[in-house]
Design a protein around this nucleic acid. Structure first.
Lengths: 147, 147
DNA sequence: TTGCTCCTCACGTCACGTGAGGTGGC
DNA sequence: TTGCTCCTCACGTCACGTGAGGTGGC
């Protein structure tokens, strides 16, 4: 057991090593610290991406959960789907060197980099289209005002 | 009435002006010409963005429908939601000068242009994040191979 | 008792994708 | 009869948003 963020729950019972003491965070604080909604955190859990421990019904996030959440949010920013993020997280082995995981993340990242470049190009093309549209409309409005 | 793309349906009955003769296109040809799926075309209709005429159950798209579809697809490319595209299309008046519509499209377009720039910046930031991630992983892999 | 935080359903959103099952005309 | 195109449901996808209705501890 360990004590909770909420207050001073006495360091009761056996010293069953849960990794480390204290630093358990409730969902509301997690949401604030990482700028995400409670719904998103619960959704990630529902999809098997994080597994906070429970104190009754209340979720408590450990340091490892924060590390995972950090990776999840980085993954989302760079455009990975939650499914892909999960695939990568699932490869993590707290024992080994994780060379396998690192290689998979590297490979997926290089592909995703390509997709990001493509997206950027599409958006730039869209901006060009947008400018063409804006120019045309301005012209038509000028025409119709003159008439 | 008018004849159909399929073949020579005789120009029967009264000459009720439907705008122009011939040039009615079936959904399959529309899909090919505009590079969209049949599902998308039916979806746009379901959402009230296009209203092809019917020959029995079969949809037939007129020239005006093609013009509308062109606008819909342009709108999608530049990131408008179908709801926004519909709002703009609904302002079209075949009688008037449509200055009102043009002004609304112009205003919405300028806003959307801003959103596109923001998206492009976010993607570029994501590419930078991606490069950081890739570099870090390469480093860790080098480390672990050396060890 | 009030207030704050937490919880679990569960339907809604957006733009279609993807079958399932059936019809019409060459 | 086979083949092609068309049709209408209707559920699935993705990443949550948004209530509804209820609990727990200060």
């Amino acid at each position: 057991m360990m004590n909770f963020a909420s207050a001073g729950v006495s360091p009761a019972a056996g010293g069953v090593s849960d990794g480390n003491t204290e630093d358990l965070t409730r969902i509301g604080d997690m949401a604030r610290q990482f700028s995400v909604t409670l719904r998103a955190l619960r959704f990630y859990e529902d999809k098997g991406l994080i597994n906070p421990i429970r104190h009754g019904a209340t979720r408590l996030y450990r340091k490892a959960d924060k590390t995972r959440l950090g990776f999840i949010l980085l993954g989302r920013r760079v455009g990975f789907s939650l499914r892909e993020v999960k695939q990568m997280l699932d490869l993590y082995d707290p024992e080994g060197s994780n060379v396998r995981q690192l290689k998979v993340v590297l490979e997926k990242s290089e592909r995703q980099r390509g997709r990001l470049e493509k997206q950027r190009d599409e958006i730039e093309a869209a901006i060009v289209d947008m400018d063409g549209l804006i120019t045309r409309i301005r012209g038509q409005l000028a025409e119709r005002s003159a008439a």
